[in-house]
Design a protein around this nucleic acid. Structure first.
Lengths: 242, 242
DNA sequence: CTTCACACGTCAATGCCGTTGTCATAAGGT
DNA sequence: ACCTTATGACAACGGCATTGACGTGTGAAG
């Protein structure tokens, strides 16, 4: 937990493992992501990862100080994938929406990994790239620096937070997911409309909405509110007329 | 993971443990919360909890099917505390803000527990009470049911998600927290302003804002956006003029 | 007041887990 | 061809959740 820096020895002599694979940070992170995608977050253990790599578990510690360190590398990889191929268009609203949805989607593409990674601050390259890009969008939209920073936080935090929330749902094992919904529905069905009038009135809607992510809607709300705060009306007018 | 229902045997004969304590669901949940608050989320293990209770670890399984089941009980307890003593005032905007801040605060009062609990859906009493109350506020504010449900989700999800995010930060052990900030600051200081102009320009603000929660601000943005969608303009006019 | 069923605390064992120290070996510069 | 040393393998440690068998004291029934 204390070390956040991957050891960087000479990293020269790649001895293949007994079973032939050649290790590297990249191979390990990729395998970890694959493992997590296939068998769930709880399958990401040093021992299982070693087995999946065809290497002794302890070999991993030549590349990462701890499992926490490995986790940060995974988180950074996800952030990197979210940005891959993205370019700001100059329309700040569309750009921010794209960024938010990309972060959300990249994490949800690996729900199991997202749960582990969304809360973390990696301090690594991909994360810095993302910060730079988003701040760039906000500042060139005309937001003063102080506000740009606040909005940056609101946007990124919300995206990551929703990603984690949705991922936690997606990541539940299928039987348990079904059980979850069933528990809710049976609970709702049994409620006395007199003691719980509001739930009773909206029970159908609640059940239907339960499985959907509130994120795109919440993101829209956030962007609406941000637009209302754009300090320089010219920028907004310029955007919509050009 | 599959069982979400606490076993409810006769629960009649309370034999005191060897060290004199008398077990119950409540005692266990309270002790778990205390334990987590004192020594961090990673200290919540069946063995340690047993020790803190002065009982054999396996005794806990008489009250909860699994640690996951215990976790849901903890989550529901937190939701309950968030609501404790709250009454809607009739001003929907103030009410929703209060609910959001209360959820946030209740979870942050036990950051270590919040990390464990925020993602979960308990299906237990306190959670149902909260759903009923929030829907009540929205529906009597005049939102049509479909919209009330969507807004309910956006609000609660955002509150829980931010709570988890902030809790994850708060929950880091103090030395590691300092290291975290330091890594960021040194990283930022070393960045070339030519390759990262936006970060360079806002470095101070970023560093200062880094430790603050974006939640109150994000909540304000959300409420602004919700207000803009109120279908009945009279309700809004009444609120701001009264 | 005695009896007795059984709720529930305890014990012991199983099979995971992360992590570490030591050793063996092959890669690659010389 | 040699040595250095990066790096993989091995073995061991302590901690983890969970389970099944066991016994003990409680509280109700007679």
């Amino acid at each position: 937990m204390a070390d956040r820096v991957t050891p960087e020895p000479q990293r020269r002599r790649r001895r293949p493992t007994k079973q032939g694979t050649v290790l590297s940070e990249k191979v390990i992170v990729d395998t970890a992501l694959r493992l997590v995608g296939l068998h769930g977050a709880q399958a990401l253990t040093v021992r299982r990862l070693g087995a999946a790599l065809g290497a002794d578990p302890s070999a991993i510690y030549r590349y990462f100080h701890s499992t926490d360190d490995l986790l940060l590398a995974i988180a950074d990889e996800l952030i990197g994938r979210a940005q891959h191929g993205w370019q700001p268009t100059g329309d700040w609203r569309a750009d921010l929406r794209a960024v938010g949805l990309r972060i959300h989607a990249a994490y949800l593409a690996h729900p199991q990994a997202a749960i582990l990674a969304a809360h973390r601050t990696t301090g690594r390259d991909n994360e810095i790239l993302a910060v730079e890009a988003i701040l760039g969008v906000l500042r060139s939209a005309g937001f003063p620096d102080a506000q740009a920073v606040r909005i940056y936080h609101a946007l990124v935090d919300q995206s990551l937070a929703f990603a984690a929330l949705d991922a936690a749902e997606l990541a539940l094992p299928a039987p348990s997911q079904a059980a979850d919904l069933e528990v809710w529905q049976s609970r709702y069905a049994l409620l006395d409309p007199r003691s719980h009038p509001n739930i009773a009135a909206t029970a159908d809607l609640l059940a239907a909405d339960m499985r959907l992510s509130g994120y795109p809607f919440a993101l829209t709300l956030l962007l609406d509110a941000i637009a209302a705060r754009l300090p320089d009306p010219d920028a907004e007018r310029r955007r919509s007329s050009a």
